[in-house]
């Protein structure tokens, strides 16, 4: 089948991770991965983002498929259960709001900018080389560090399940995927 322009969006996803290594402010671009699927699902009522444009899914598909990094085993039953998918969505949201709160504290001047990327909500990785000052506010940089943490964490999780199970196992429990499917269910009254 002839490849379309959107079949190359994995390059964008990969570039995003690389750019954030050199300048953390690029992390802001990751908001597109949140906003676009939400717009498509609320306006059109489809999962068009997952189905076509998700660069992260394509990246996992490529690494696990063509590069053969996946064991290609079935994902465990509990990981595709509604309990786990919705539970993970809620957990992800809580962590996201915690990140927003920390950003707010920096904006309000109550705490200082922490130049670290938090992996798996636990491990603080030094990342100071990617910070070159900001003309806006140190809070804007705090958000960038926080958002990049979210993106890197989900990439690492997706990478591990890509190896263990099928290439795009991340799609099964991806919070954005679960949320857009939920929006579609509500919008299409099901």
């Amino acid at each position: 089948m002839k490849k379309k322009w959107y079949d190359y969006l994995w390059i964008v996803s990969l570039s995003y991770l690389i750019l954030g290594f050199f300048n953390i402010m690029f992390a802001w671009l990751g908001l597109l991965c949140f906003i676009i699927p939400l717009i498509i699902s609320t306006v059109k009522g489809t999962k068009g983002y997952c189905n076509r444009y998700c660069g992260r899914g394509q990246l996992f598909g490529l690494l696990g498929g063509r590069f053969g990094l996946s064991r290609n085993r079935d994902i465990p039953k509990w990981m595709k259960s509604k309990w786990f998918r919705y539970g993970f969505l809620i957990f992800f949201f809580l962590m996201f709001f915690l990140m927003l709160w920390n950003t707010y504290l920096v904006f309000a001047g109550a705490s200082d900018l922490k130049q670290v990327v938090t992996l798996l909500w636990t491990f603080k990785l030094p990342w100071h080389w990617a910070f070159h000052g900001t003309i806006i506010h140190s809070g804007a940089a705090q958000f960038a560090f926080g958002f990049y943490s979210v993106m890197l964490t989900s990439t690492v999780l997706g990478f591990v399940t890509m190896i263990l199970f099928k290439p795009r196992s991340w799609c099964v429990y991806c919070p954005m995927g679960t949320m857009t499917q939920l929006i579609c269910k509500i919008k299409n009254k099901e």
Binding site: G45, T46, K47, C50, N51, G57, C171
Partner: peptide, 23 residues
């Protein structure tokens, strides 16, 4: 249990799959 990710839709050589309403 379908998550409507669309992986099947991409791979199907006959275009026999659609994702119904993102569900």
């Amino acid at each position: 249990l379908c998550v409507a990710c669309g992986c099947c839709l991409k791979i199907c050589p006959l275009g026999a799959i659609t994702i119904f309403n993102g569900i």
